Simulated scan of single mutants.
Amino acid sequence: MDGHCLLLEEVVNLWDLHDYVFKMTIPTYEVLEGLCVVKPGTELASFLGSCNLQSGKRRDRSSSIYFITVGERGIVGMWDSERAVCLYEQKSSDVTVSSDTDDSPRGFTAAVILPLDQGLLCVTVDHQFLFYSLVVHLEEKFKLMLSKRLVGYNEEILGITFLGKEEKFLAVATNLEQVQVYDMESMSCSYVLAGHTEIVLCLDTCVSSSGRPLLVTGSKDNSLSFLPLNKMLL
C-alpha cells in the first residue's frame, strides 16, 4: 500500500513502512471487521477527492489515503487518512437483524472493492453478499446503492409462495426471522422483509378488504404479520 500499513479494531492505526514510524490513530467508534484501500485514479477516489474539496480545507491531497471500513454496525464508511475524518457514511444499514439484543448477529464481516469501478462487495454475518454501485445523488455528492443481494446460507426451507400477478418474485421462509424475496429471473435476493422476533414458520398472500395485496406470515413468536406488497412486487 505504497509504504503504509493500516491496522484496525475500534480504531485505524496508520504506519509508515519505509521508516517504521507510527503516523496516527483514526477513531471509528465501532468494532471493525474489514478495510479496503481506495486506489488512486478510480471513480471512487475521484468522488472522495471532490468531497475533500467541498470541505473548504486546503491540504496536500497527494499524501491522503482514502479507505473504506465495515464492521458491527453494518454501515459502510469512507475515510481520508490525512484529515482523519469520515467523508461518507451510509445513513442506514442494509443488514437486517431480528432484535437489538447483544447476542444477535449483525454487521459486515468483510468487504472488497470490485475491479473496473464496478462497486463494492460486502459480506454479512449471516453469509449474504451485498453488491453496491456508486451513483450520483442530488442531495449528496454520491451514494452507495444496493444493486444485488446474494444469500449463501438458508438452512431448512419452511415455506414458499410466489408474489405478483406474473409471479416474478418468490418469497421464502427459512430458519430465520425474516422473509427473503428472490427475483426469479436473476435469483438475486431483492428484498429482506422483517417483522418477527422468532423464525417464520409459514407464509401466504391475500388481498385486504380495500383491495391491497398483502403477504401474511406466521412466526414462532406466536404472531401474524401482514406486510403490504410494494409496487415492485406486484
Rank of each mutant, 00 (worst) to 15 (best):
G3C: 11
C5Q: 07
C5T: 11
L7K: 05
E10M: 04
V11N: 07
V12E: 05
L14I: 13
W15Q: 13
W15R: 08
D19S: 13
K23V: 15
M24P: 02
T25M: 10
T25F: 00
I26C: 03
T28I: 07
E33D: 13
L35E: 09
V38P: 00
P40K: 14
T42W: 03
L44H: 07
A45P: 06
F47H: 13
G49K: 11
G56D: 08
R59V: 15
R59K: 13
R61D: 12
S62R: 04
S64K: 03
I65P: 04
Y66V: 04
Y66H: 09
F67N: 07
I68K: 00
T69V: 09
V70M: 11
E72T: 08
E72D: 07
R73V: 09
R73M: 11
R73T: 11
G74R: 00
G74C: 05
I75F: 07
I75G: 00
V76S: 04
M78L: 08
D80F: 08
D80L: 02
C86D: 02
C86E: 10
L87Y: 00
Y88A: 02
D94H: 14
V97M: 08
V97G: 11
S99M: 09
S99Q: 02
D100F: 12
D100Q: 13
D103S: 12
S104H: 11
P105L: 14
R106P: 00
G107A: 08
T109M: 14
A110T: 06
I113L: 12
I113W: 06
P115F: 14
G119F: 10
L121Q: 08
C122H: 03
V123S: 07
D126C: 03
H127A: 04
Q128K: 12
Y132K: 15
V135W: 14
H137A: 15
L138D: 09
E139T: 12
K143C: 15
L144E: 11
M145S: 15
S147W: 12
K148H: 13
K148V: 15
R149C: 12
R149E: 05
Y153V: 07
N154K: 01
G159L: 07
I160Y: 02
T161V: 07
L163V: 14
L163T: 09
L163A: 06
G164W: 01
E166G: 04
K168Q: 13
A171Y: 06
V172S: 02
E177T: 13
Q178V: 00
Q178K: 00
Q180Y: 01
Y182K: 02
Y182M: 05
Y182L: 11
D183V: 00
D183Y: 03
S186M: 04
S186N: 02
C189M: 05
S190T: 12
V192W: 01
G195M: 02
G195S: 09
T197C: 04
T197W: 10
V200F: 01
V200N: 02
C202E: 03
L203S: 03
T205H: 04
S209E: 10
S210T: 07
R212S: 02
R212Y: 00
L214F: 03
L215S: 04
L215E: 03
V216E: 01
T217I: 04
G218C: 01
S219L: 05
N222A: 05
S223D: 06
S223E: 08
L224A: 08
L227N: 06
M232S: 08
L233G: 12
L234I: 08
L234Y: 06
